[in-house]
Design a protein around this nucleic acid. Structure first.
Lengths: 347, 347
DNA sequence: TTGTAAGCGTTATCAT
DNA sequence: ATGATAACGCTTACAA
């Protein structure tokens, strides 16, 4: 049975195709109530569904947006994707995903893939290759970056105060009495977090020591695991570690335990992201939580509202959530951990 | 600067629009080498990109497929999504995602969302509402189910041998010397796994005891956590548990530890899924691993090849991966766990 | 080997 | 309040 189109509906309802359009779109012209209901009845009877491709062709708009990221398997991204999908749905949009891989090797390919599908906008997270940026610029597509407000001030962006959040995290560990805080960072990104750590620590360490306190891994559990093993097997390892992302921290927790060390007594850990999953390691992770839901909403809104929001960059607030891995909450307090924001001034 | 269309390219290259099409699509008619290069040059110069909407309208095909699932945040789904996206990309397709929520409340809405976007096919995972099935049937869209081969034999499906896998998992725990194995299951799904557990255990338990050994939670870390707390706080709790999904098992591990119990000595755990994340709990999870990558490929291929593959149902093999949570591998063997398939006959 | 032109299902402008 | 119709950019049968 052939699918009905607008003309079939019009014929059955005894109206013109234009009227069918007016009914479907509630405009741009008014339709008499009687006519409207005849049209609706006809649509029902024929199981009519408007053809999105035709509509997209006519309107030069697909009502689909894309999310380009490293790896949907990373809880940070999957939570972001979930919130974005929900918001997109609310606003009548669909969400396409593209994984660029840890090394960003698929970055350009995925970008072109999305551009070729005529998405109305693209959110970029963890995207960095210069080729990608120039490709974006010349494509003229609607874009928002979730990373580099700094590198490309002409491109709209969102983010958090990476520098401040990192300092806060490091200082929280110092507040616990640690004199040195190690760093586990991504291979070649999030340099602002690395810089903030280094600035905060350089008051207490020599530059050589800073190097000894740093290990790199990619943004996977495995990457965090290996970086932690590397770091902790060195001669004089730190007893507290700032991990630049939750996924990595999952690997770090596992590594510390594998080495037979105790968290937080032998090694205290804090990480930055605050995904839902971070509450379910054991011990649970003390984190700086990013408001992923808020960020996702903002990103989708920005991409789907034709430039109504003028701001080029929006910064979202972060929150320290003290849990077990730093020593704030003891593992004995099963299920009683306090998930409210932590404030140093109160202590 | 207006975007170039096929006519602009044709004009610049001094050919007809048809020839431009022939060049782009490598057919259906041959093009002289010289002409082809002129066309290509013109496309470059104008930064021409074919309009996917127009193409979709003409061909009645969007080259986009959809994945409808509960929650992309569940590692099982996010890993599946990743593999599917990769395969789709290889085959020139895009992947749209839709989250239906734990209760499936958004199921119909998301389905219509995808249908309205004219996706060429939809993969359903964790979808079960009867309304959804009838909506699918009448829409005539290309579909593949990743759950219910049984309930709707007229719809193509993939899966694993849930019954056999569960039996294997339970028997593995029994082989470890346990006499009773508890069950943590999803609220109203995966009944085949529940049935298999019940069949396997009923030789050793009374029906009343079977009830005492069962707890339900939704497919989240939190759901597993609460179900485990519930189960383990009962008078005579099991010392071994079969968990019907990895996500739930993450919560179970956390719950057991919170109760101050040791894994695997006080409580042994095995779960079914075998996501990458399952190797990073502490202790690591012994799992029945599903070949997500293979399944994803198959699903995408089936959805993107116009009915070339005749099979209505394909079953994929599963593999028992012995790790720490059952006692096969001791936590001391840091990084030395054997990830090959486990065979009881060898022991 | 290349050109012409019809048609895919919409939307929206111009009539009526 | 409604109808007729020209576009939107592409593919492809048919002509040359």
């Amino acid at each position: 049975m052939k699918r009905a189109n607008r003309e079939d509906v019009a014929r059955l309802a005894g109206v013109s195709t234009a009227v069918v359009s007016y009914v479907i779109n509630n405009g741009p012209r008014p339709v008499a109530e009687a006519t409207r209901s005849r049209v609706i009845a006809a649509m029902d009877e024929l199981r009519y569904r408007p053809n999105a491709s035709a509509r997209a062709l006519k309107l030069a708009r697909t009502n689909v947006i894309g999310l380009l990221m490293w790896d949907i398997t990373n809880p940070y991204f999957s939570e972001m994707a979930k919130y974005m999908q929900e918001r997109a749905h609310e606003r009548g949009y669909g969400l396409m995903i593209g994984n660029t891989g840890q090394d960003g090797i698929e970055e350009t390919a995925e970008l072109h893939n999305m551009l070729g599908r005529e998405v109305d906008g693209i959110a970029l997270s963890g995207v960095r290759r210069p080729e990608t940026l120039t490709a974006i610029a010349r494509s003229g597509v609607n874009v928002i970056s979730m990373d580099w407000h700094l590198a490309a001030p002409d491109i709209p962006s969102v983010g958090i105060d990476d520098y401040g959040a990192t300092r806060e995290a490091v200082e929280h560990l110092l507040w616990h009495g640690h004199t040195e805080v190690g760093l586990i960072a991504g291979i070649d990104d999030l340099t602002l977090r690395e810089k903030s750590w280094s600035d905060t620590m350089s008051a207490r360490c020599t530059p050589e020591r800073l190097k000894e306190l740093t290990a790199y891994g990619d943004f996977t559990r495995q990457g965090g695991y290996q970086a932690a093993i590397d770091l902790l097997k060195r001669p004089n390892p730190p007893k507290a570690i700032f991990v630049s992302s939750d996924v990595q921290a999952f690997g770090v927790v596992r590594a510390v335990q594998h080495l037979g060390l105790n968290i937080p007594n032998d090694v205290a850990i804090i990480s930055l992201d605050g995904t839902d999953a971070s509450a379910f390691t054991y011990p649970s992770l003390t984190v700086i939580r990013l408001p992923l839901d808020e960020i996702a909403k903002h990103v989708v809104d920005k991409l789907t509202s034709h430039g109504a929001d003028e701001r080029m960059h929006t910064t979202f607030p972060h929150t320290l959530i003290p849990r077990e891995s730093c020593g704030c909450v003891s593992p004995e307090h099963a299920g009683r951990e306090d998930v409210r924001a932590f404030s140093h001034s109160q202590s």
